[in-house]
Amino acid sequence: MTDSPMVRFDKVTKRYGPLTVLDSLDLDIARGEKVAIIGPSGSGKTTVLRMLMTLEAIDGGVIYVDGEPLTHMERNGKLVPADKAHIRRVRAKIGMVFQSFNLFPHMTAMQNCIEAPTTVLGMKRREAEARAAELLDMVGLSAKKDHYPSQLSGGQQQRVAIARALAMRPKIMLFDEVTSALDPELVGEVLQVIRRLGEEHDLTMLMVTHQMGFAKEFADRACFFYQGKICEQGEPKSFFSNPQNERTRQFLRAVLEAG
């Protein structure tokens, strides 16, 4: 199934009451592709990631992951809404990093990173710790492994959160404005980790970001969302230097002015 996209949104619709947040969204993401999702506030960027992480149910369409339906399952040749077990099995391929870190406050950095591998993957504690130690080293936090989240800076917490997600060996990583809650001087260290991830791992990555500079150099593709639709997308160099759509132009101009 290597020819199928890693992620496919097939006419996915999401509503909150009368508000249609995503309107029949079609989006394919290739294996190993790094996609930057940009767009104004309320355009549905977070919703896209949350649906893929199964934190939000969808109201129409199908999401496929690694060639297999995530939101649905096949029964007698027909797609029916997926049950819990199916969702859990397919969801194992996806990891997510949140804007507000969401580390477990009563656990050390190390404990945060071994909780899921030991309880979900059934890994031996020793093995899980060895792997977590490697990941914490990769994010530059070997020295802080026994610290609790409240003893870490925002940038450090976010790097632990990245290590924690990677410990589950996901094929797809979702990043939702992971630097937005950080003081400006801490943004760099987190982006540096993400950059290294892009180089060292064969990960498919989707990131919602307002860091246009980073999106431009890092992503293989930029997707501009506007009112629940992809308004324009393309290879970042041309997308950012020569946007075709008037809305994209307006948005980029506004972001640039804001600095």
Binding site: M53, R88, R91, N102, F104, T119, V120
Partner: peptide
């Protein structure tokens, strides 16, 4: 906080 539940889901905890 809701984020604790969401992080647990994202890590696939039962």
């Amino acid at each position: 906080p809701r984020g604790q539940w969401e992080a647990s889901t994202a890590l696939n905890l039962s």
